[in-house]
Design a protein around this nucleic acid. Structure first.
Length: 511
DNA sequence: CGCGCAGCCTGTCCGC
DNA sequence: TGCGGACAGGCTGCGC
């Protein structure tokens, strides 16, 4: 049950209750395994000791007694401590009870006897005694304290994660790595850092580790301030020793919220099993992004056809005496085919039909291409080289019809770099419908959600996102709309930037 | 090294 | 209402 904030609150509550300085006058154990199997040894060791200090390390409550005796108390799933007057009836789940002498309060008034009771329905909790040297040895196996600002740094966590192929969530739950995180706060922290729980630790970028280093203390401090997290109302629920209530559960963003809306993106919180623990996350804010293939748009993404097409259309219109502004034509880029057709139709007015003009424009474009070829967009060659180097299959996913696409790819000198090309005339619904991307992924033998899709236009990025691909937007001639930015998983300035991410492994999150 | 699984325990909740 | 199964905030040990 309890994680670091609940344990910390418990410790604080014990301190406030003023039990330090008390002497143990009687010890009762009703479940011997709680104390390591030998109740008699436990009782006789504790009897007559004076409790000197109560502290916490990770999820352990550390009770320091006089005479080199240290109690390490772990609440595990359902453990709870309470301080009660001796005459209070003992509960059915009290596994260990320490009677404390009537110490003096600050004012010097004698108190009636009190008892520290270890209540633990599920019996997983442990209360073991050690010499201080042995206790140190046990505690030394724990990882860094996440609330220790100095100790819990980017460098320290980076070192812990470096080269480890283990998934990040089980790693965070490993007390040897970070001491005190449990299932709730591991999920919450990963959500806050925007990291998918199944990402391999080694795949995390410095920036992501930085986000985690910031998120973990934030999440824990918030829970601490709220008095811990208490779920449900049953016997095994967390309560403070004093019986005060906690309300940290109200601040949870993902834990126990499967199916509910993510407060950041409105998407649905998912729940799955990871390392036998239920795991909650937002698939949109915490993308897994297992990139197994890359799908590339053609016009504007790989080759500079948009400029040629605009120029040709302008030239064609001029043959009918119409002088269209380059900027106005530019505005048709990034619209769906239907919308841009309507805009162009309006520009041409009664002078010439859209069909005639675009047919002429196409001829002119082909002439221009035949004459000058088509330029590849900067960084394309290096990007394709990198894909080949890493053995990542890739395909073209274009709205352009087969005949023109083949011609343009050939003229641009990249036709032989693709064995898979899906064209607009081969699907029933063009972009922004997801069909082109779905088909391209299928032809690579993949699912679109395992693919990176690279696009320059809004309909394209919408198609890619709708197919479930990890959609990267590289704006070409027009500034991306806010909607395009919203659906894109990432916006990059150039293909070179994507190549760099690919080299770093930032787009290749191994599960 | 990292994963999955069983085990340790009892209570609660959900569907039938 | 009863009954079986899934699941619960933790951690360990084992086999692959």
């Amino acid at each position: 049950m309890p994680e670091l904030p609940e344990v910390e609150n418990t410790v604080n509550d014990l301190r406030e209750a003023g039990i330090t300085g008390s002497r143990i006058t009687a010890v009762t154990v009703t479940w011997s395994r709680t104390v390591g199997g030998d109740s008699d040894a436990f009782c006789s060791q504790l009897h007559g000791r004076k409790l000197q200090t109560v502290t916490r390390r990770g999820k352990f409550i550390v009770l320091i007694f006089d005479g080199d005796l240290v109690g390490l108390l772990h609440l595990r799933m359902s453990g709870r401590l309470s301080i009660e007057a001796s005459e209070t009836l003992s509960g059915a789940y009290d596994r260990v009870t320490l009677a404390l002498d009537s110490g003096k309060t600050d004012s010097g008034t004698p108190e009636s006897g009190r008892e520290l009771r270890f209540h633990d329905p599920r019996k997983f909790g442990r209360f073991l005694l050690y010499s201080s040297a042995d206790a140190d040895q046990v505690l030394s196996r724990l990882g860094v304290e996440p609330l220790d600002r100095k100790a819990f740094s980017l460098e320290v966590l980076s070192r812990q994660l470096k080269g480890r192929r283990r998934r990040i969530k089980p790693l965070l739950l490993d007390q040897r790595v970070v001491a005190g995180l449990g299932n709730i706060y591991a999920d919450e922290s990963l959500w806050e850092a925007g990291i998918h729980p199944a990402r391999s630790a080694a795949s995390l970028q410095q920036g992501e580790i930085g986000a985690l280093v910031a998120a973990i203390p934030r999440v824990l401090e918030r829970a601490l301030a709220a008095g811990g997290t208490s779920l449900g109302k049953g016997q095994s629920n967390y309560r403070l020793p004093s019986g005060r209530s906690s309300k940290g559960q109200n601040g949870l963003q993902v834990y126990g919220r499967a199916g509910a809306a993510c407060s950041q993106c409105g998407g649905s919180i998912a729940r799955s099993m990871l390392a036998q623990r239920s795991t909650h996350y937002c698939p949109r804010c915490q993308p897994e992004a297992r990139i197994r293939g890359v799908l590339l748009d053609m016009d504007g993404t790989m080759i500079e056809t948009e400029r040629i097409l605009i120029g040709s259309f302008q030239q064609a219109a001029a043959e009918w005496g119409l002088h269209l502004a380059y900027e106005d034509l530019l505005a048709t880029i990034g619209k769906t085919a239907e919308v841009s057709r309507e805009i162009l139709r309006e520009m041409l007015g009664e002078v010439v039909s859209f069909e005639r003009c675009s047919k002429r424009a196409e001829e002119l474009a082909m002439e221009a291409i035949a004459l000058q070829g088509i330029a590849r967009r900067p960084g394309l060659d290096e990007f394709l080289d990198e894909l080949n180097r890493q053995g990542i299959p890739h395909a073209v996913a274009t709205s352009t019809h087969r005949r023109e696409a083949e011609y343009m790819l050939t003229q641009a000198g990249i036709r032989d770099r693709f064995s898979t090309v899906v064209c607009g005339d081969e699907v029933s619904n063009g972009k922004p419908a997801p069909e082109i991307y779905q088909r391209a992924a299928a032809q690579l033998g993949l699912e679109a959600r395992d693919c990176l899709a690279i696009e320059d236009s809004e309909p394209g990025i919408r198609a890619a996102a709708a197919a479930g691909a990890h959609a990267v937007l590289i704006p070409d001639l027009v500034q991306p709309s806010s909607r395009a930015r919203f659906v894109a998983a990432r916006v990059c300035a150039t293909l070179a930037e994507v190549t760099a991410l690919l080299r770093e492994g930032a787009l290749l999150y191994t599960p």
